[in-house]
């Protein structure tokens, strides 16, 4: 669990050695909030991808 949580943080926030932009962490955060509120798994994952895509569409890196 500890390893996997660390994995979530690094993959959500970083790309190689650099900051991965704002859109990805924001999307993962949306998914995290949904999951915390016990939304179905499908909704969580699509919500995360969807909000990241939406943010990128709006020009957020």
């Amino acid at each position: 669990m500890v390893l996997l949580t660390a994995l979530v943080c690094t993959t959500a926030l970083l790309e190689a050695h650099e900051w991965a932009g704002t859109a990805r962490p924001a999307g993962v955060l949306v998914g995290g909030v949904m999951a915390w509120r016990k939304a179905p798994f499908l909704v969580v994952v699509l919500g995360a991808a969807g909000s990241t895509a939406l943010l990128r569409l709006l020009g957020v890196p």
Partner: peptide, 16 residues
Amino acid sequence: ALGLDAMFPAVILALV
């Protein structure tokens, strides 16, 4: 552009 890179951390997060 499809936000697929956010999918992987979200999957793991939802499960942990």
